[in-house]
Amino acid sequence: MTDFAALADAAWPPLERAELGGWRLRFAGGVTKRANSAWAGGADDLDGLDPAASLEALAAVEHAYRERGLPPLFQLSGADGDARAQLIGRGYRAIDETLVLAASVSPSPPVSGVEIADAPSDEWIAVWWAVDGRGGTAELAIARRILTGVPALYAGLRRDGVLVSVARLALVGSWGGLYCVATLPKCRRRGFGERVVAAVLAAGAERGVTDAWLQVLARNAGAIALYERFGFAEVDRYSYLWVEICS
């Protein structure tokens, strides 16, 4: 069975990783929840912990995040029911339910008018950051390190010479992780997002990608409809658990 959480961890790498009490911790200066949350990682260690030891492990994870000036944040799927119950008991609440979608990738002709590169240009990052970015210069520098921490392909579409739509495909073995699909607000509803997705998937197939996955907020019906047109279907889902003040 494919471990999509592990694929995503590889495709969106934090600046620092650690393992503690059966949890896998990720730190990246608070830039994106993906790179700043703890996950079970399929570790059998969590199953073997008694309730007292499990609570002790949770407290240790919380301390590790606070030491770095970050709020404790946990990424949990439906299989992590015991940990979810313990966190809710500590005052945590679930936010940002996220779907994991996957699809097979078949070779297809290149999409005309879409540029493909092995590294993100400043212009590419500026478009993505204008849509999805949160923070200033320091956060943008961390985001760049995350993007370039694993081999990936970067698609960009121009309109009147200006880059307006982008997408990233992280290369993890035969899998491709679709990230950073973003179109400037003034250029939406013209099919640009669909074109950059088609182009980056086609480029991935040329590099040996046979399957792809992506993560999308469950409430983002428009994006889900776009991805379904490429054959993506739900294979998993998760949410983040967080609390402003932990005991």
Rank of each mutant, 00 (worst) to 15 (best):
A202I: 02
L49Y: 03
L99Q: 08
F27L: 08
L101T: 04
F230Y: 10
G81D: 08
L101G: 03
A198H: 04
E123T: 14
E234C: 05
L241M: 11
G48D: 02
Y227P: 12
V150Q: 15
T210Y: 01
L46Y: 01
G21I: 09
R229Q: 14
L153T: 06
I95D: 08
V31C: 00
A53I: 00
E234W: 04
S106C: 08
A85L: 06
E62V: 03
A28Y: 02
A130F: 02
F74A: 04
V105I: 11
N36Q: 06
Y240E: 09
V166R: 05
Y92S: 08
A119N: 04
Y179V: 14
V127N: 07
S104I: 02
V127P: 03
R229G: 06
E97S: 08
G136N: 10
A52Y: 00
R229W: 07
A143I: 00
L46G: 00
L226G: 06
G173Q: 07
V150F: 03
G231T: 12
W12S: 01
D44H: 09
A182E: 13
A143R: 14
A43G: 11
A155F: 03
A28S: 09
A59K: 10
Q215L: 08
T210Q: 13
P71L: 10
A64H: 05
G30I: 08
E56I: 02
L87C: 01
W39F: 11
A60N: 06
A53F: 01
R24A: 07
E62T: 00
L184Q: 10
C187I: 04
Y227H: 09
W128K: 08
E194C: 00
A5H: 13
V172I: 15
L58R: 10
G208V: 05
L140T: 07
D211T: 02
A155W: 10
A85W: 04
D82N: 00
V105Y: 09
T32C: 07
A35V: 05
N220H: 02
I95M: 03
A52V: 12
A119M: 11
P72D: 15
S165P: 10
V235T: 00
A57F: 13
A59I: 00
L99A: 14
Y227T: 14
R145P: 10
R195W: 13
R237Q: 09
S104C: 05
A205M: 01
A59D: 12
A202L: 01
A143W: 11
V209I: 13
A35K: 02
A85K: 14
R189C: 08
G30C: 10
I125T: 07
A152C: 08
V131W: 02
A218S: 05
A198F: 00
G133N: 11
T148H: 07
L46T: 03
V105Q: 11
S77L: 01
S77I: 00
Y238W: 14
E19F: 03
A117H: 08
L157C: 14
